[in-house]
Amino acid sequence: MPVNETFKPTIVAFCCNWCSYAGADLSGTNRLQYPANVKIIRIPCSCRLNPMFILRAFQRGADGVILCGCHPGDCHYTTGNYYARRRMTLLFSLLDYMGIERGRTRVEWVSAAEGAKFAATMNDFTETIIKLGPNRRLEDLRCKTE
C-alpha cells in the first residue's frame, strides 16, 4: 500500500486519569516527542470508555482510537481495566467482523512512570494509522471540515 507522506492522521487517545494520563504528562515533562495530532481525552478509569465514545471519535474525524489505562492489577479502582479489557476485545472483534480495519483501534497499558512507553506507543500507533490511511469506513461526511 503506498504510504501517503502528507497524511497526518488524527489520533484520539483515551487515557485513564491515574496512570496513563500521568504517563503522558511525564513524557511531556521529559520532552519526548510524539505527534501533535494525538488528542488526549482524560477519563477517570479505562472502564469508563463507553463503546459509543470510540464510534463518536471516528465520526468526528479520528483516524485511529487508542485506549490507555493502568496495567492489569494496578487499576486505581482495582478491577476497572479487567472489565475494559473484555469489553474492548469484544468490541474490536465486532468492528473487525464488520470490516473495519483492525489496526485502527488499540489498547495499551501505560503506567504513570512510563513516559517513554507513552511516547513510543503513540509514535508506533501513528505509524500504523499512516499505513492504513484515512478512516473511510467509519467516517461521517457531515463532520468533515476540509
Binding site: 492489569p72 479487567y82 474492548m88 476485545t89 474490536f92 473487525d96 489496526g103 483501534t105 489498547v107
Partner: peptide
C-alpha cells in the same frame, strides 16, 4: 479473570 487475553489478539 486476570488471565484474560489482551485486546491485541484481535488488533
Amino acid at each position: 479473570t486476570p488471565e484474560d487475553p489482551e485486546a491485541s489478539i484481535i488488533t
